[in-house]
Amino acid sequence: MGAVFILEMKKNLQDRGLLFWMVILPIILTVLFITVFTSGAEKIAKQEIITSIIPGYTVMFVFFIIISMVSTFIKDRDLGMTARLASTPLSSKNYLLGKWIPYMFMVCIQIIILFGFGKVVYDVQMKQPILLFYLSIALAFTVTGLGLAMALLVKTENMGIALTQVIALGGALLSGLWVPIEMMPEILQTVATFLPQYWAHQSFQDAMHGTLMLEDFFTSLLVLMAFGCGGFLLAMVRYPYFLKQARG
């Protein structure tokens, strides 16, 4: 597993496209939207907007890692790497773990950078850092779990890109990542509670303000882990078919 882990980390860290999607674009959009929405706002309102936008855009953009996950699995399958690795002592379980764990790291790094940017540039509050830490890991697990399911379910890379956009952008729209959830119609507020983005965003905001109750923290954690586990379960069901396809 170590060999696959090292290779994937190397690939990801050298991938400039991934750097753009994961860090540069979210920072550009965060700065842009904060500038637009805070112009003319009072200090308290301004801070409120910033504390909504930074976790909001972080949550939205972590979902784009799914594209990269889909791409790596589909390429491995289509270019024969999955089959090639089956001829080595690497077990299929370790192959899967070796592919997945680097993405967990990448998402965690992404959250640290984006939150760090918020802290340094906008002095965003981080009043409950330990809770933020655990929530970040849970979110990374959710996203990569769903990413794994998607990577093993879709037949083509384009299909994966299209579905990721639906999940990331659709989820962002419905979960109140762009517009404060209180301003959305009641029906959409109910729909939002079925989406992982909503739970991540709300609990991140509360933890930043220092108002996240332990009960709410555990509820959010549980919901996020449930989505992640659901993704993993789907991936496990699909994995044998993926391997069969890859091995020809």
């Binding site: 190397k10 690939k11 050298q14 270019l79 024969g80």
Partner: peptide, 8 residues
């Protein structure tokens, strides 16, 4: 097939 990581 050429089973190599092209970016490395």
């Amino acid at each position: 097939e050429i089973c190599l990581e092209q970016n490395l």
